[in-house]
Each structure stands twice: as structure tokens, then as C-alpha cells.
């Protein structure tokens, strides 16, 4: 499986142009035409990305996440969730880079093979940066009304975190 993960990109880079050549397509010209679209797409998503990253960056730097985590920590202790992972759970849907930094810190502070380290790894690895994806993907096509997309994304993140916690309690004794 890991092999497939490493081989997927080279195989696509070889296979797609090969198929094009067999179908007698001008693969080089087509590639450059498509690549040109990449530039416009990048310019198109930059404002949405920037707006999102600035808001989240300000919120992170303000310490509001840590305060919220501190405020919620008595609740966590009653269910046996280590409060140390709370900032990660709160930040994960908002900032991929921020969440990754917290995970790296938790792994360094508590050790990757501790309960906190394992739980943080599972939480980091099992979901994606919901708000960022919605902002960039919808922004790229000019959709302004997300309708129920945010509700679905955030509720799914909550379910993922709860499942991560339950499965870690089951698999890894603390």
C-alpha cells in the first residue's frame, strides 16, 4: 500500500501522456495549455486563501484557542479525554498548518508512543481542514452561498474526533 502511495504519481505522469500519444494527441501543447489554466486558478484562489489564513492566524495568536481549551478541560476530564489534545481538536478544521504544528509539539512533549501522542496522531491523520477546503474550493468557482456544506463538514469533524478518541481508548491502554 505504501508502495502504491509512492508509485502513484510517477505512474500517472507516465501513463497519461503515453495514452495521449497513442491517441495521436499533441501532448506537449495540451500540457502547456492546461498548465496555463493552473496560473489563473492560483490567482483566483489566492484572495480566499489569504482571507482565511489571516483570520485564523489572528485567532491563533490571540490565545483564544488555549483559553477555550482551558475552559472546556473540566468537561474533558470527566470523560477521560486528555485536555492537552483539545487545542488540536479545535484548530484542526480551521488551519492545517496550525494543527500540524500542535501535533508536532504534542509528539515532542509527550512522546509519539504515549496515549496523548497516539491520539493526537490519529486526530491529525483522520480528517482534513474543513473551513480551508470550503473557502478555497468554493472560492475557486465563485460560489458565495455555502448552504449546508459547513454544517455537514463540521459535524463530520466532531464525529471523527469522537471516534478517534473511542478507538484509541480501545486499542491503546493509557
Amino acid at each position: 500500500m505504501l508502495w502504491l502511495s509512492q508509485a502513484a504519481i510517477p505512474l500517472l505522469l507516465l501513463g497519461i501522456p503515453l495514452y495521449g500519444l497513442l491517441k495521436k494527441q499533441p501532448v506537449y501543447e495540451l500540457f502547456c495549455q492546461g498548465a496555463a489554466e493552473g496560473v489563473t486558478m492560483a490567482v483566483q484562489i489566492l484572495p480566499y486563501l489569504l482571507a482565511m489564513l489571516v483570520a485564523v492566524g489572528v485567532l491563533r495568536a490571540s490565545g483564544a484557542f488555549l483559553a477555550l481549551a482551558r475552559w472546556l478541560s473540566p468537561l474533558c476530564q470527566t470523560v477521560g479525554l486528555p485536555p492537552e489534545v483539545l487545542p488540536l481538536a479545535l484548530l484542526r478544521p480551521l488551519s492545517g498548518g496550525g494543527a500540524l504544528a500542535i501535533t508536532a509539539e504534542l509528539l515532542a512533549d509527550y512522546g509519539p508512543d504515549s496515549f496523548i501522542g497516539r491520539l493526537a496522531s490519529v486526530m491529525q491523520g483522520s480528517t482534513d481542514t474543513t473551513c480551508y477546503i470550503l473557502a478555497v474550493y468554493f472560492g475557486s468557482v465563485g460560489v458565495k452561498k455555502y448552504r449546508y456544506a459547513l454544517a455537514v463538514g463540521l459535524a463530520a469533524d466532531a464525529v471523527t474526533f469522537i471516534s478517534a478518541f473511542c478507538i484509541c481508548r480501545l486499542l491503546f491502554p493509557c
Partner: peptide, 12 residues
Amino acid sequence: LGMLKIAEASGL
């Protein structure tokens, strides 16, 4: 997107 353009034009 360059690769996808080839895939699109060739019918892949």
C-alpha cells in the same frame, strides 16, 4: 491541470 488537459483531450 496540464496532465488533466491531456487526459481530457485524449478521451481518458
